[in-house]
Design a binder for these strands. Structure first.
Lengths: 221, 221
DNA sequence: TCAAAAGTGTTGCTCATACACCCATGA
DNA sequence: TCATGGGTGTATGAGCAACACTTTTGA
């Protein structure tokens, strides 16, 4: 992709920075909030072999959003995912290779996501946010901000929906809230509140897992 | 400043974009929410003579935050102001001169601000947000997002403090809330709520304006 | 009948809203 | 005494938190 013709009329001398995106991609699996990490593979990079958020350079003919979709697909085999812009990090030495300004995004996917690992061009792993290694670049800082934002938004929006598969039980939804906030909630109060919001639809069908009473299945409206 | 040596080890061919900041600077004056606009002065620019948010290019040796401080000071004569990052706009054709990615900031100042007009290198004006002209570039979109964010944050944070002078009356503070939200509030309920937050301190002094009962002066803790 | 998760109501508290009159001042 | 904005209390309803037992199922 670097062979694209540079037909940008902006003078070269003021184009000092490379523009990148970094994607903090979350899921909830087995009651744990997890984040997608990719192994740094570029040579001449003191962080080679470290774990980092998936990301890369924005190209001349795409927006930051388009770069996010492309990089998630190419590097991690993840497609059609919910995303929102998080923050832009412009510290001068955040990348030891030179001035790189990064627009960070949060992305959410459901725990049963279909990651096309055949397409993924980077070694990736899902790590619980409670036990992360030291990350490359300023990615520790980025994920700190991302978790803070995610915890705050799950309280007053319905973003939890992007963690859920099409159909789910109320217990599963509750586990997602608890995994994100890190705190347990009362089952009756949770169900009352979430039903009162009017964002769920009862499918009138049930699912049975193991030796127990079947649970009602819901979808988001 | 463009004469700075380009000692960036990032290869020239991936540095396609210019990085800019745009600053949506608000104040409340005479009960109206106003925004600072600067007249576009660059030649070879189809927007020359239009009004736009104050902004400019980020330089190689400064962060976006530092660029905001520098540009507000140089172009508008405004110093030491509260600011927070709003959103990064990366649409490909947002600037007709070429690919410019802009990190937008919100800045707030009090209505009695001391703008050093002698230093200001750009013609500026404060405009009521209710009667804005069509702005240059994508600045209509930027201010739409900025106002949305400001209205939302004034409801659950204490950012209103940055609109106030050191000391102020409760009526003045209420006017700021009303100017930002665009809606009137009940005086008794407003005072009860704001006092209950515990963020104000009564100076035990009063101020008298015109022919009326003096009002108590408060400060933010 | 046991294990395991599903499902269900009531009470008290806190907080937001609606609403109207007297006070202090200088002209 | 009048005009102007400053300053105050109460009642009602909504929404949230605390709290424990019964139901359904298959082994």
């Amino acid at each position: 992709m670097k062979d694209k013709k540079d037909n940008n009329p902006i003078p070269q001398e003021i184009r000092f920075a490379a523009l990148a995106v970094d994607i903090v991609c979350f899921r909830v699996a087995d009651g744990d909030l997890e984040v997608l990490l990719g192994k740094v593979a570029t040579d001449n990079n003191k962080y080679k072999g470290w774990w980092a958020h998936v990301g890369g350079l924005v190209q001349i003919d795409e927006t930051a959003e388009q770069a996010v979709d492309r990089l998630l697909s190419d590097k991690a085999g993840i497609n059609k995912i919910y995303k929102e812009q998080l923050y832009t990090f412009s510290a001068i030495n955040r990348d030891p290779r030179g001035r790189v300004v990064s627009v960070a995004y949060i992305a959410l996917t459901d725990g049963t996501n279909t990651q096309d690992l055949a397409k993924a061009r980077v070694e990736t792993v899902w790590k619980r946010v409670g036990s992360l290694p030291k990350l490359a670049y300023d990615h520790d800082e980025i994920i700190r901000v991302a978790i803070e934002r995610l915890r705050s938004k799950i309280m007053y929006t319905d973003i939890a929906r992007y963690f859920m598969p099409k159909e789910f039980t109320l217990s599963e939804l509750q586990k997602v809230y608890e995994a994100v906030t890190g705190e347990g909630v009362d089952k009756r109060n949770f169900r009352k509140r979430i039903i009162a919001l009017g964002i769920l639809k009862d499918t009138r069908r049930t699912i049975k897992k193991g030796v127990m009473r079947p649970a009602s299945l819901y979808t988001f409206k």
